[in-house]
Design a protein around this nucleic acid. Structure first.
Lengths: 178, 178
DNA sequence: CCGGTCATGTAATCGGTTACATGATTCG
DNA sequence: CGAATCATGTAACCGATTACATGACCGG
C-alpha cells in the first residue's frame, strides 16, 4: 500500500505529461529534487495500486517493452483531492547543525569545514535553480503551471541565499573566536 | 543497534550535563528541536547500548527510581570521534512545497492557505528562537559552548526570516494572478 | 556484438515513530 | 487520595531506501 504523499507526487507529475516509471523518477529527481524525492521502491508499487484503482492507465508508447503511464479523469479528481489535504511533515534532522551544535568537541577547523561545505552546497543549488528558472521561463506550453512552479523555486532560492549569508557570517564569527 | 546520529545527539547532550532518559528527550525536543528530533524508542535502546560499551554510566540522583545517565571519559572520546564524521543526510521532503507545485489543481485560495500557514509557522519559530537566544546569552555557565549554540540558532533565524519574506512575496504574486 | 542506458519489478533491510505496559513521585 | 507528571522500557508497525534480478533497446 502506498502513501498519499507518493500518490500526490506521481499523479501530479503525470498530470503534466504521461511518462514511464523510469522517466517519472528522473522527473521527480530533476524537477522536484530540491524539495522532494521518491525511489523506485516507492514509485512502481504506487503506480500499480493507482492503476488498480483506475487513477492511472497504461497507454502504448514508442517502445513496446516500456509502459507509458497516463492519468485518467478519475485520477485528476483524486489529484485535486490529495492536493487539498495537508501532508504529514517529518520531524527535522539536520546533521550538519547537530555536529555544529557540539562544535566545542570538534574544534574551529572542523566547524569551518562543515560551514564551508554548506556554503558550497548552497552555491551549487543556486546555480541549478537558475537553470530551472530559465527552463520554466522559456517553456511556452505550461503557462498555467508556471506561476506555481516559480513559487517553489523562489523558496529554494531564498533559503539557499540565507544559507550562503549564514555561512559567511558564521565563518567570520568562528574565525574570530578561534 | 542504534545509529551513530542518535549516539551523537545523546552523548552530546550528556556532555553538557548528566540527566535521565526522560529529561534527555525533553532537552532534545526543546533545545535541538528546530533541527533535530529523537523519540523514546530511539533514546532508551541507544542509552542501553552506550552503557554496554562503557560510553555512558548510571549514577544515582535524587530519585531512586530514576537513573541519571552521565558520559564517561571513553564516551567523551567517542563523542569527539562521532562529531568529526559527516552524518548521512536524508533526502528532502517538503510537503507544503509539493502541494504548491501542483497548485494549479488546488486554486489560489488553497495555495494562499498553505503560504499563510508557512508564514505563521515561521513567525512562531522566530519567537521561540528569541527566547532561546535570551537563555543562551543569560547562561554564564556554558560560555565555551555558547558560540556554537548561537551559530545553529542563527541558521534557524535566517531561514525563518527567508521563509517569512518568501511567504509575503508569494502572497502578493499569487494574489495578483488570481 | 558489446557496453551503456532504459525499463520494471521485488525482497531485504533500516531508521524511526507510535502505542502500549508499567509503575513511582509529586502536588494540590 | 487522585491527577498529573516523571520515568523506563518493549513491540508492532510503517515509510522508505538499497540491492538485487532481469531483460530490452540503442549507438558505436
Amino acid at each position: 500500500m502506498s502513501t498519499t504523499s507518493t500518490d500526490l507526487a506521481v499523479l501530479g507529475a503525470l498530470s503534466v505529461e504521461p511518462m514511464s516509471g523510469y522517466a517519472l523518477r528522473e522527473a521527480i529527481r530533476d524537477v522536484l529534487g530540491h524539495f522532494w524525492s521518491e525511489s523506485f521502491g516507492q514509485i512502481y508499487p504506487a503506480l500499480a495500486s493507482l492503476e488498480a484503482e483506475g487513477f492511472v492507465e497504461r497507454i502504448e508508447g514508442s517502445r513496446p517493452t516500456a509502459s507509458l503511464f497516463a492519468i485518467t479523469a478519475a485520477g485528476l479528481e483524486r489529484l485535486r483531492e490529495l492536493v487539498r489535504a495537508p501532508l504529514p511533515s517529518r520531524p527535522p534532522r539536520h546533521g550538519a547543525l547537530l555536529r555544529l551544535y557540539f562544535g566545542r568537541h570538534l574544534g574551529s577547523a572542523g566547524c569551518l569545514e562543515i560551514v564551508d561545505g554548506a556554503h558550497a552546497q548552497a552555491i551549487a543549488s543556486l546555480a541549478t535553480y537558475a537553470a530551472i528558472r530559465a527552463e520554466i521561463e522559456a517553456d511556452t506550453e505550461h503557462t498555467d503551471d508556471a506561476p506555481f512552479w516559480l513559487t517553489t523555486l523562489d523558496f529554494g532560492e531564498r533559503t539557499a541565499r540565507a544559507t550562503v549569508e549564514w555561512a559567511e557570517a558564521t565563518r567570520r564569527a568562528l574565525g574570530a573566536t578561534k
